[in-house]
């Protein structure tokens, strides 16, 4: 690649970065504006919107609610996804491809369609809208990500590891708990963080399956209907910073774990 091409390429890249981040930067800036009206110019700055967020009981309750849903749906998704991965990886049986396809499907169905489907199914099963229904929908949606990530990791586990454990006196269950599971930890942790973020971020399923209590994205949406306010910017900024921090930490953490266990 010659020098001119490189310059053009880097210009295009930075233009793209700008395009992606300008809306986010604008959103963050407006959260510090000392006026109810969103838009330029910004004449004076304030942290009132942020302190307001922490004094707003509704926002805090919603934050707790969303977090609880994220944690519980992640636990379910990780348990089911890991179980499916262990079942499918390295084994050949009739229907394997079908089970694999069905496992991956929820990740591919458009959110709105799956949300409506869940709503109909929940009513048919007699499941009340609310926390349980949201957890159920989030878990189903997230299982494929866990299964795929864990399967990829599992496929790199040498068969001799399990045989060595068996050879030294471990029955299949002990071998799984003491050898397979620790080996899968980086994948399990990584996909857990991903599930947490997906669940926390989800609007469509939470909206369709929710009861009277809103999750955070649903609350933001509700607040928007009564007019834009910099408080929403403050909430969104906090959510953005926290999720980005968790994401970056998880990425580095799992990378280190992966490196440590490579013999």
């Amino acid at each position: 690649m010659n020098r001119r091409n490189r310059i053009v390429l880097s210009c295009v890249y930075w233009a793209f970065v700008l395009y992606v981040f300008v809306p986010l930067i604008l959103m963050i800036l407006m959260g510090f504006k000392d006026s109810k009206f969103i838009g330029f110019p910004i004449r004076s700055w304030t942290l009132d919107w942020y302190t307001g967020v922490f004094e707003d009981a509704e926002v805090l309750a919603t934050l707790g609610y969303s977090t609880a849903i994220a944690v519980l749906s992640t636990i379910v998704a990780v348990a089911v996804g890991t179980w499916i991965a262990v079942l499918l990886e390295g084994r050949k049986f009739i229907g394997r491809t079908a089970i694999f396809g069905l496992t991956v499907l929820p990740a591919l169905v458009p959110g709105i369609i799956s949300a409506i489907a869940f709503r109909i199914y929940a009513r048919w099963l007699g499941i009340e809208p609310g926390m349980g229904a949201i957890i159920w929908a989030h878990a189903v949606h997230n299982v494929p990500f866990v299964a795929l990530v864990v399967m990829a990791r599992l496929s790199t586990l040498p068969k001799s590891q399990i045989e060595a454990a068996r050879d030294l006196g471990a029955d299949p269950i002990v071998a799984f708990l003491r050898i397979t599971l620790p080996y899968l930890m980086p994948a399990i942790l990584g996909s857990s963080i991903f599930c947490l973020l997906l669940s926390f971020d989800d609007f469509v399923r939470s909206f369709f399956l929710g009861g009277y209590d809103p999750t955070l994205p649903v609350l933001i949406f509700a607040k928007l209907k009564s007019g834009m306010s910099p408080e929403i910017n403050a909430i969104a900024t906090i959510a953005l910073v926290v999720t980005a921090a968790i994401g970056i930490w998880a990425e580095r953490f799992t990378r280190r774990l992966n490196k440590d266990t490579q013999a």
Partner: peptide, 13 residues
């Protein structure tokens, strides 16, 4: 009976 594996199969963790 115990075995020394070709790739040693030491537990990395």
């Amino acid at each position: 009976v115990n075995m020394v594996f070709q790739d040693y199969a030491l537990f990395p963790h």
